[in-house]
Design a protein around this nucleic acid. Structure first.
Lengths: 334, 334
DNA sequence: ACTTCTTGTCTAATCGTTTAGATGAGAGGA
DNA sequence: TCCTCTCATCTAAACGATTAGACAAGAAGT
């Protein structure tokens, strides 16, 4: 059937075989801007099939100024939270026929800009940006280029660009309420090194909820090692609070490891709730009670927002509380 | 300085400002195939800077038949092993000035083919393929397209394409030797559902090492849930072996969770060593003893292999044994 | 019978590069 | 002086698609 020798067949080849001009072939291929007679369409389709013709996306992109590629900039794919988000974004984009150009920026603003630059030069049709923090420079850079962009999980300071996040206020409130239900009053919060945008609002919500109780605000990098180090230090000093909400699972996992190393019983002497809810959280010891972010829904909404259509009232992205062992409830280990 | 209105500047614009033809501008931009007088070069560079000119990669790709984009097909970015590998591959490619098109195939051959198809249509310069298993169809599809490809972590059955893997035989042997050092003789192996290529060789190595001891070969999907279910069942039946090597960390984590749920003490009554060594493995309870795969080196080698050059004798990719608590050594928790 | 639509198709310009071939100006050799 | 080489540069043809404008033929309206 299919020719196997030589170069890939082009539009012109198909036109020659079908006995038409390249224009009609193009019209057929994209149900083009002009109608084509049924009989002709058949001939074209047959010719295309015979040659195993596949349109050259590059040529199409050059002419039509749309590449069918979307850039995804994220902090770090080896963090399961971002990794899972990346996977869902990629899948949502694929469903819309788009390809995903991925870049890991680490937590460095320089690399964020570098990637944005590269992606813009590659003429992406849009950008999905998932940062842990910061990214203001990138935001203005992107806006100036006039490329549509959506921020997920965070929002640049200027707050102009559309952003998708779970309902963080609600999540924090659920966590606080649940820990209070266990009798805790001094509930500490482990935040990231800085905070801006929606993720920062987690801290703000905690602050108003716990106002006046003297519960400490802790800060460390979003890594297991950093959280473990901080926790170890606090335990040694004897200043570890009895209840803690962590901004991320990575931090919570670090806290748990340090507690174990120092023989501090969880949840008896330290109750923990984390705000991410990655798959990892179900397999820690004890399993983490979390507010589970709906990553798939967030990814879907981000893509809808970016590509338009489906603008049906964006569903509220609530992060339900998933109760496991680390908060003090009977461990429902499995 | 920079123009801000209107469309992006093109080669032609630069040529006009510099008072040259587009050819010289092109020669300057890529230290072109022909020399340019120093004075002229300066003028061109100045004009380009003034206009803030950035070459249009699409047009360049159309003409020169090379896109500067490499496709990365992997099973599942939310699995930290693949996520970390993806990050390292992306970074190695970036260092070479390439962009990374990423796709998650899940564990489905259909999606593998779908992605390969898309990427080939996008005219990628090369393909990095990271599968858990299988992928023979994709391999032939890719080979027929004549696009260079490298397989990482696995190798298609036909064994023609270059592949990068850690030294799995050695890893298994280290694990077996270590568990024997703890006095175990019946050392079971938890493999994936099928096995082919290098990953399959892990099982083969185990088989020859343990020949005649009657140690069982277990199989389940590469997921925590599947491993946990299997382990739970074995414990209930009373047929759980006392020593186990798992093919992946994900499986090991599932095993640990099930053991905990069934109050089976690790490492006292069940010693475990896993063959991946993802960051996760350091934070389980007890922390996993693993053979640690050098993901970054694997990624670097894969990219070198794909893009040529640097062919300096590929370093041996050994996976050193990292001793933590799950094997029976004194837990060096931290 | 003559204009006016409609419908289907073709011609050719265009997107922004790369690069082979033509051209022209000096330098050096006879 | 004339011819031959270099160099530096320019002209213009690709690359493979999209799409506005021209055109031909038949249907419909008067």
């Amino acid at each position: 059937m299919a020719k196997q020798a030589g170069k890939a067949p082009t539009l012109t080849d198909v036109a020659r075989v079908a006995g038409t001009s390249t224009a009609v072939v193009s019209y057929v291929m994209n149900n083009g801007p002009r109608p084509v007679a049924a009989a002709t369409r058949e001939r074209v389709l047959a010719a295309a099939a015979e040659l195993d013709y596949r349109p050259n996306r590059i040529a199409r992109a050059l002419r039509s100024r749309t590449t069918g590629v979307v850039g995804l900039i994220l902090a770090d794919a080896s963090n399961p939270y971002f990794g899972a988000l990346a996977r869902h974004v990629e899948q949502a984009l694929d469903k819309r026929g788009k390809l995903t150009l991925t870049g890991n920026a680490g937590y460095s603003p320089d690399r964020q800009e570098h990637l944005a630059d590269k992606f813009l030069a590659a003429q992406v049709d849009g950008l999905v940006i998932v940062f842990a923090d910061g990214g203001a420079d990138v935001a203005t850079q992107v806006k100036r280029a006039g490329v549509p962009a959506v921020y997920v999980h965070n929002q640049p300071e200027d707050g102009q660009a559309p952003a998708v996040t779970a309902d963080n206020e609600d999540a924090v409130q659920q966590a606080v309420a649940h820990l209070r239900g266990h009798g805790h009053t001094r509930i500490a919060f482990l935040a990231g090194p800085r905070d801006a945008g929606p993720v920062g609002r987690r801290r703000a919500t905690w602050e108003t909820a716990l106002a006046g109780t003297g519960a400490p605000l802790l800060r460390c990098e979003y890594s297991r090692a950093a959280a473990a180090a901080l926790t170890g230090q606090l335990i040694s000093e004897g200043s570890m609070p009895a209840a803690l909400i962590t901004a991320t699972d990575e931090q919570a996992i670090g806290v748990l490891a340090a507690a174990r190393a120092h023989r501090l019983a969880v949840p008896e002497r330290l109750a923990v709730i984390s705000l991410d809810g990655t798959p990892d959280s179900a397999y820690t010891a004890p399993a983490l009670t979390v507010t589970q972010q709906p990553l798939e829904a967030m990814a879907a909404q981000a893509v809808d927002l970016l590509l338009g259509g489906e603008a049906a009232a964006p569903p509220a992205l609530s992060a339900p509380l998933v109760i496991r062992g680390s908060c003090g409830c009977a461990a429902t280990d499995s």
